[in-house]
C-alpha cells in the first residue's frame, strides 16, 4: 500500500498533507499505463461496489469515475438526481443511507451544496469520495490538474512542484476546481496566481495558499500570462451566478457579445465582450506564454468566450490529457479509499 494513506473518505485537499497528496499521485502514476487502455485492467477492486450519486448534472466526471472503477474491476451503479428518490423529496442523507445499506463500498457524490460530501460522510459508514460539492472542492480535479502539470514539467518522479506557477483564470469565486487546485499545488510547493475580474476573483482567495505568498490574486491577465507554466482556464458558471437562467442560454448570449446583464451573472460580468477582451485566453495571449507552458481547462468550455477554439485545440493544450489522467487519478483515489474503508 502506498505510504501514508489511511482515510476512507476523500472530501477535500485542504486538509491533506503533502505526503498524502503524493500517495495518491504516485499510485496514479502507476495506473497511468492502464488508464488509457480499454483492454487492460486490474483486479484490485473486484467484488467492490462503487455508487455514483450525482445530485447535479455531470457527464465527464461521472463517466470518468465509472471508467476508473471498471478498470479496477469494481461494479458500478449510477444514481442520478432526476428520476431518483432525490427528486421525490428525500434528503441526501437518507438517500445515501439507503444506498449504503445495499452493500456499497464507496459512494462518489456530487451535490450543489458546499459541505454536502462532509455531511454525507458523517452519516454513512462506507467510504465517500467528493466529486464536487457546491463552491467548496472538487478534489479529484485538483489532483488530475496537478498530475497533468507535473507531467508537462517533468516532475513525475517526485511531484515536487516548487518553482512552478499556475495561473487559474476566470470564475474563481464560485469554483470548487480552483479551491482544490490551490490546495494541492501550494502544498506541493507551486505558486498559484488567481486571475479574473474582481467580482469573480476576490482578493480573499489569497488566504487559501498553503504558505504566505503562495497564492496571489491579479486582475490583469496580460501581466501574468508570460510568467505561468500552466494557464488553467475555468468555465464561467452562469448557473451559479444567476440561478434559474439556463447556463447554455447565458453563455450563448455572452459569446455573441450581447450583455449577459446583471440578472444573468449576478452583476459579476458586465458583458461577454468585456470579459473576453480582458480575460479570454485568445490566440494572441497564448502566443505570449512561456515556450513550454501548457493550457488547461476542466471543461466544458465556452469556446470563444473564456478561450479561443484554436487555443483549446492547439499545440499547448493538454486538455485531453487531463481527461485521461483523470481516470488514473480516480483509480488511485478509489483504490486507496476502498482499502481504508475495508480495513
Amino acid at each position: 500500500m502506498a505510504g501514508g494513506w489511511s482515510h476512507r473518505h476523500l472530501l477535500d485537499l485542504q486538509s491533506l498533507s503533502p505526503d498524502e497528496l503524493r500517495a495518491i499521485l504516485f499510485l496514479a502514476r502507476d495506473y497511468a499505463p492502464i488508464a488509457d487502455r480499454a483492454d487492460a485492467h486490474s483486479d484490485e477492486l473486484r467484488g467492490k461496489v462503487v455508487a455514483n450519486l450525482f445530485f447535479e448534472d455531470s457527464t465527464r466526471t461521472r463517466v470518468s469515475f465509472s471508467v476508473a472503477a471498471r478498470r479496477l474491476s469494481a461494479d458500478v451503479v449510477d444514481l442520478m438526481g432526476p428520476g431518483s428518490s432525490a427528486s421525490k423529496g428525500e434528503s441526501i442523507g437518507d438517500t445515501a443511507l439507503n444506498i449504503a445499506a445495499l452493500g456499497v463500498d464507496l459512494i462518489v457524490v456530487r451535490h450543489k451544496a458546499s459541505g454536502a460530501a462532509a455531511n454525507l460522510a458523517n452519516i454513512v459508514t462506507c467510504g465517500v469520495v467528493n466529486a464536487g460539492d457546491g463552491r467548496h472542492e472538487h478534489p479529484t480535479q485538483g489532483l488530475l490538474d496537478t498530475y497533468t502539470l507535473a507531467e508537462a514539467a517533468g516532475r513525475l518522479d517526485t511531484f515536487d512542484m516548487s518553482g512552478l506557477t499556475m495561473a487559474i483564470v476566470g470564475d474563481l469565486a464560485t469554483s470548487r476546481v480552483a479551491r482544490s487546485n490551490i490546495a494541492a499545488l501550494t502544498k506541493l510547493g507551486a505558486r498559484v496566481i488567481c486571475v479574473g475580474p474582481p467580482g469573480l476573483c476576490p482578493r480573499s482567495l489569497r488566504t487559501l495558499g498553503a504558505a504566505d505568498g503562495s497564492c496571489e490574486v491579479s486582475h490583469d491577465l496580460d501581466a501574468v500570462i508570460a510568467h505561468a507554466d500552466a494557464v488553467n482556464v475555468l468555465r464561467i458558471q452562469f448557473e451559479r451566478h444567476a440561478p434559474g437562467v439556463p447556463a447554455a442560454e447565458a453563455a450563448a448570449a455572452a459569446r455573441s457579445g450581447e450583455s449577459p446583464g446583471p440578472a444573468r451573472t449576478g452583476g459579476a460580468v458586465s458583458s461577454g465582450r468585456e470579459y473576453r477582451e480582458l480575460y479570454g485566453l485568445t490566440a494572441e495571449r497564448a502566443a505570449r506564454m512561456k515556450p513550454a507552458a501548457v493550457v488547461m481547462h476542466p471543461g466544458p468550455i465556452n469556446k470563444g468566450l473564456e478561450m479561443d477554439a484554436s487555443v483549446a485545440d492547439g499545440a499547448r493544450s493538454v486538455i485531453l490529457r487531463q481527461v485521461s489522467r483523470g481516470v488514473a487519478v480516480r483509480m488511485a483515489v478509489l483504490r486507496l479509499c476502498a482499502a481504508a474503508a475495508t480495513a
Binding site: Q14, S114, G134, R135, E137, R176, R179, S204, T207, L208
Partner: peptide, 19 residues
Amino acid sequence: TRGASMHAGSVATRLGLGG
C-alpha cells in the same frame, strides 16, 4: 446576503460558502 450562509471571512472562503 444573497446565497450567504456564514460570516464573510477566511472560513467562508476556505469552505466555499457564500459570505
